[in-house]
Design a binder for these strands. Structure first.
Length: 309
DNA sequence: TTGTGTTTTATTGCCTCC
DNA sequence: GGAGGCAATAAAACACAA
């Protein structure tokens, strides 16, 4: 790999060996981005000493011994200065600069370096590390947001399951009632039923006559009970679906247990559909309702797949 | 004081762009 | 091919509990 020309230490053209890479100093012209005037407060890590508020250690020694020609000590004396943290003021300044723009153009880098008494490369490194930190923070934030959204969605799903169970039990209850009622009425008025539809016995003639596509005749009492259910102000759409399709597609039955089971089975799609349509229409206003869709999937993972973020 | 975990500074290698 | 960015990592500096 081509070595980068990092000026790290001597600005006089000396070769500085760091522990990992050979750095050749630049020629040291003012136009060079790596140029650091010898008169600058900063000479490599020595610059830290000019800010001094953390200035412990023996920062100056390395530079004082820089001209020692003794080969035996050459390597030792050309060890890079131990890294030192930037001062509070330097960091504050860099932070402000980063806030205004997290990318660093060469001109700005040199300007900042001059103002802070740092090497341009140090400024570049600081920005690079700062961008990395910022990115990590963003990732953390994104993760938290996703987690929060997921939790809301999960709560939403659980509420829907509860509501579905509630609806199911209500339907079951009503089905039972209807069955009992149907049995009672068919016993006591078996003669009348020969000439009249059952719905008429429950005063539902008008409803029946309005509806042209159902077979109310045999199921009027059930409809009446479902109407009551609807009066709770909860399940209008369920009623619409019940009226128009599922339930009364069945031909007349003898009111046996089989029919009861069939009715329950037939109603379940209504309930499922009802819950889904409520969400899709944005009608669901449960305690944890969010602007996301749940389409009746059973597992957390699947529910997770349908959110809008 | 010391061990340990975290943060910051700096290096290295790879990649992209001009 | 050089410059610069980024990810991964090293290592020094720092914080803090025991």
């Amino acid at each position: 790999m081509a070595a980068r020309s990092f000026l790290y230490g001597g600005g006089d053209g000396s070769v500085v060996v760091t522990n990992k890479r050979v750095h050749c100093s630049s020629s040291g012209t003012p136009a060079d981005p790596l140029f650091v005037p010898r008169s600058s407060a900063f000479q490599g890590s020595r610059s830290m000493l000019s800010f001094e508020d953390r200035g412990k250690g023996s920062g100056g020694q390395f530079w004082q011994n820089e001209d020692n020609g003794d080969d035996e000590y050459d390597e030792y004396f050309h060890q890079p200065e131990k890294k030192r943290r930037l001062t509070v003021d330097q960091v504050r300044f860099l932070e402000k600069s980063f806030e205004s723009d997290n990318k660093l153009e060469p001109e700005r880098k040199i300007q900042l370096a001059k103002e802070l008494g740092l090497q341009p490369r140090q400024v570049a490194i600081w920005f690079q590390n700062r961008r990395a930190r910022w990115k990590n923070k963003q990732l953390e934030k994104d993760y938290d947001d996703l987690q929060e959204g997921y939790n809301k969605l999960k709560a939403n799903y659980e509420n829907l399951v509860k509501e579905k169970e509630k609806l199911k039990s209500e339907v079951d209850k009503l089905t039972d009632k209807m069955m009992l009622q149907e049995k009672g009425t068919s016993d006591s008025s078996s003669t009348r039923s020969m000439s009249q539809p059952q719905s008429c016995q429950h005063g539902l003639e008008e409803d029946v006559s309005k509806n042209t596509n159902t077979k109310y005749g045999q199921n009027g009492s059930f409809t009446e009970k479902l109407d009551d259910f609807d009066n709770n102000g909860v399940h209008t759409s369920l009623m619409e679906r019940v009226d128009s399709s599922y339930v009364f597609e069945q031909e007349q039955s003898d009111g046996s247990l089989d029919e009861e089971n069939n009715l329950s089975k037939m109603l379940m799609p209504c309930v499922d559909d009802y819950a889904s349509s409520k969400i899709e229409n944005g009608d669901y206003t449960g305690p944890n309702s969010v602007n996301s869709y749940y389409l009746g999937l059973p597992g957390d993972d699947q529910a997770f797949g349908f959110w809008s973020y």
